[in-house]
Design a protein around this nucleic acid. Structure first.
Length: 313
DNA sequence: AAAATGATCAACCGCGGCTTC
DNA sequence: AGAAGCCGCGGTTGATCATTT
């Protein structure tokens, strides 16, 4: 279906915003709200398209924008979230108050991505068949199997809970119109039923045909830090068709491996970024990648993943 | 001092999804 | 049901500043 272009109308200004335009936009939104972005420019008296106004407001003028460099905690969060959701900048931004998707995207592309590539922790090409990439696939298979087991246990415990609740209700002549079963937030089950779980299952299936060397044994900690996620097929097709410049879709984050041959360049990496990597998979709990972050991430999974169960968030 | 190169980031573009009619 | 409109997202571009040669 065709779409009427938004910004190519003659007379509409493009390019950098002037302070005067900024003031007009801020004044208007503060007194009227943005309402319909499409009609806002006309109502506010701006020679801009609505799209440009929205971008300027959300990325720059919004009062809750947090300026300044990213803190180590924020960087760590970005790395962790990116390993989980890939280039879902808006999803990542939602977990970092005051940061915009555009800012995070730029920061990733100009800082974090380069650092991780230099450190050999990121493989730009998912189809890479190098030993390092192979190792990461092996990791994904391992992680997928573990997640599946966790999910199965969760289902079983949920079923047990459900059955006992039904029995109790029958005994007490209560309506068996269940779900007063207010389940505890079941993290593993949600993940497993989400796109993330789907990606793991697909990865595991793909890896099943992959010949991994018998000596590829990895520590639990490193495996937790190593997750290869792939977007669902639709998303993958979309990104592949859209872009060929940057490695779109969630990249492979691999553990430190000798085969990357990058030991000599790791020295270039700052101690701080290296520490970020070390912190990355060092959670005390069993789910290293999510170490200590489950609470913070739960809202992410509630809001952004297609959880097919009826579990409440 | 000036040109070349690299890094950064604000802004644009085009597409997909959702909503409305 | 499907066409049209709108919004938001992710990828890309280009201007500007910093650094190097």
């Amino acid at each position: 279906m065709g779409r009427a272009p938004c910004c190519d109308k003659s007379g509409l200004k493009k390019g950098p915003w002037t302070p005067e335009e900024d003031k007009i936009l801020v004044d208007y939104i503060q007194s009227h709200g943005h309402g319909s972005w499409r009609s806002l420019p006309k109502l506010a008296g701006l020679l801009r398209c609505g799209k440009s106004c929205r971008l300027r407001w959300t990325n720059y003028l919004r009062p809750d924008i947090k300026r300044g460099p990213f803190t180590p905690e924020e960087q760590k969060s970005i790395i962790q979230l990116h390993a989980i959701v890939g280039n879902k900048w808006s999803t990542i931004a939602a977990q970092l108050p005051g940061r915009t998707d555009n800012e995070i995207k730029n920061f990733w592309n100009t800082h974090l991505k380069k650092r991780l590539l230099r450190m050999g922790l990121l493989h730009p090409d998912p189809s890479d068949t190098s030993p390092a990439a192979a190792a990461s696939r092996h990791m994904a298979q391992w992680e997928g199997a573990r997640l599946e087991a966790e999910a199965r246990l969760s289902r079983e415990s949920l079923f047990a809970h459900s059955a006992s609740a039904a029995a109790a209700a029958a005994v007490t002549n209560l309506s068996v119109n269940l779900p007063p079963l207010k389940p505890e937030p079941d993290f593993f089950l949600r993940i497993w039923n989400s796109n993330v779980g789907d990606a793991f299952r697909k990865t595991a299936a793909a890896s099943a045909t992959f010949e991994s060397s018998p000596e590829s044994s990895f520590t639990r900690q490193s495996s937790a830090a190593v997750v290869k996620t792939e977007p669902p097929p639709a998303a993958r097709e979309e990104t592949e068709s859209k872009s060929c410049v940057t490695g779109s879709g969630p990249p492979v984050v691999a553990g430190m491996d000798d085969s990357s041959g990058s030991n000599d360049v790791v020295d270039d990496v700052s101690e701080e970024s290296y520490q970020l990597y070390l912190d990355f998979g060092s959670g005390d709990d069993d789910l290293g990648l999510f170490g200590g972050q489950v609470g913070a991430f739960s809202s992410l999974f509630c809001s952004d993943l297609n959880v097919e169960t009826s579990l409440d968030c």
